[in-house]
């Protein structure tokens, strides 16, 4: 016989008579504040720090979330680059040299993967975020995402060309 769980929550007093002495009950999660314990609506407990291990879909979502950390850090690097550019030639060239450290190279690899993952998932989402209707029909979603990929590739090639890479 399992003992009725007596929670330390604020609604403890109100619950004790409902559970009843000596009545076999499965242990219940402690009732939340402002709810009527077991008598209220079902409250599914979600572990706040490990919920995303429950499903691969959640893991992919969190992987995308983490890309923001690298993109944000890279933006800070861009601000520092701009600061050294404003400070003059010597300072800018010193900045270019610090880029060559192993830490910087490792960071660039991570930032590149994060930026590419962000871009791909962003373009994949465009067909859901902004569906286009022509008359009765919707434009096929893959056409919308595909157009973004084509524009992305073209823009990237133009920027690489203008930067003198080829």
């Amino acid at each position: 016989m399992s003992k009725p769980l007596v929670s330390a929550g604020p609604s403890q007093g109100g619950d004790s008579h409902k559970l009843g002495a000596g009545v076999a009950r499965e242990p219940q999660p402690p009732p939340r504040e402002g709810r009527m314990g077991g008598a209220g609506p079902l409250i599914r407990e979600v572990p706040p720090t490990s919920w995303y291990f429950r499903h691969p879909r959640y893991l992919r979502y969190m992987a995308r979330e983490i890309t923001s950390l690298f993109v944000g850090a890279y933006c800070v690097l861009l601000v520092i680059a701009l600061q050294s550019l404003a400070a003059g030639q010597a300072s800018y060239e010193a900045f270019l040299l610090t880029l060559r450290s192993p830490t910087s190279i490792a960071f660039h690899v991570l930032a590149l993967v994060a930026a590419l993952y962000h871009a791909a998932t962003w373009f994949n989402a465009t067909q859901k975020a902004m569906p286009i209707q022509l008359g009765e029909e919707f434009v096929p979603g893959n056409l919308i995402s595909g157009a973004h990929y084509v524009a992305w590739a073209a823009l990237s090639i133009v920027i690489l060309f203008l930067a003198g890479v080829f």
Binding site: A81, L99, R100, I105, H108, V109, A119, L155, I159, V165
Partner: peptide, 18 residues
Amino acid sequence: IAFFIPVIVLLTFLAALG
């Protein structure tokens, strides 16, 4: 970010590689 950051990272990555 989606359109510009990957190619900008690529440019500074090239600089990082010398």
